[in-house]
């Protein structure tokens, strides 16, 4: 698949996808403020509760913003099968052997 980001590629995003993938400006401001609030006050947890996909050292794993932005990157670069796997919560998008 050609590695291009074209206007046409962007246009393939539906309005709904755009809204889901792109946080509103006020949400982004809020997220930035929240990040700055936690700066200097490192998280208390050593081990987060078991939760698929959760990082064990962060409070609750990857943020929704990060996941949405990864999905947006893949949509805009034609990696649509990965978007589907991300949506399904699959951690194994590779084509290798599984054991």
């Amino acid at each position: 698949m050609p590695a291009t980001v074209s206007t046409a590629g962007s246009a393939q995003l539906s309005d709904r996808d755009r809204v889901a993938a792109e946080p509103a400006p006020e949400q982004r401001d809020e997220a930035t403020t929240r990040r700055r609030q936690v700066v200097g006050a490192a998280e208390r947890r050593l081990h987060a509760p078991e939760k698929p996909g959760a990082g064990r050292n962060s409070d609750q794993g990857q943020s929704e913003t990060a996941a949405a932005e990864l999905s947006l990157i893949w949509r805009m670069t034609g990696e649509t099968d990965l978007v589907e796997k991300l949506a399904q919560g699959s951690g194994r998008a590779g084509r290798g052997e599984e054991d």
Partner: peptide, 16 residues
Amino acid sequence: HDPRDQTSCTAWNYYA
């Protein structure tokens, strides 16, 4: 700072 606002680098996906 131990952030939640981070994605995988996706390199393992790239290598696979």
